[in-house]
């Protein structure tokens, strides 16, 4: 039997029918056309599908879509505005913190969550916090620099 779910994604009310076995990631990509979140591993190891559910950072491959009834989901699609990229996004571009780009949405969502909790993290804190976001291209260093530079810009300091 299909489950009827009413929830909120990036501030907009959405409604869908899904099989109970469907994950939030599948609904985002296949039902709602939000394909920014990627499936890397499907087991919560890589972080490419990172979203926020009621403000908690989580892997959407490990959330049943049915669980989101009445909750609030935030995805990569809600990060930039029509006018401008988020500082994390512009600094990832500037620092060449991405190559193939599959990990990037998850990194932006996770790093944004970190900076909202801690606007001035140490390099070590950024590295630990993003340990669940795997990148097989960059070697991480440019990503970490980009996050630290974005944090500085968001604090109003010259990056």
């Amino acid at each position: 039997m299909k489950v009827h779910v009413q929830t909120e994604v990036n501030g907009e009310a959405v409604e869908f029918l899904c099989d109970p076995t469907t994950t939030l990631l599948e609904v985002l990509r296949d039902n709602l056309g939000l394909r920014g979140s990627k499936e890397g591993c499907g087991t919560g190891d890589c972080g490419a599908c990172s979203v926020e559910l009621d403000g908690a950072l989580a892997c959407s491959c490990l959330i049943l879509a049915a669980e989101t009834q009445g909750r609030s989901v935030a995805t990569i699609e809600g990060v930039a505005t029509p006018e401008a990229l988020h500082p994390l996004q512009s600094h990832l571009l500037k620092s060449a913190g991405l190559q193939c780009g599959v990990c990037t949405p998850g990194i932006v969502v996770a790093a944004k969550h970190l900076l909202e909790q801690d606007p001035n993290p140490t390099e070590e804190a950024v590295r630990y916090f993003l340990a669940g976001n795997l990148c097989r291209c960059t070697g991480y260093d440019k990503i970490i620099r980009a996050v630290l530079d974005a944090a500085a810009e968001m604090r109003g300091e010259a990056a």
Partner: peptide
């Protein structure tokens, strides 16, 4: 426990 994402859940 796991990553930041895992700890969120």
């Amino acid at each position: 426990i796991g990553s930041s994402q895992i700890q969120g859940r």
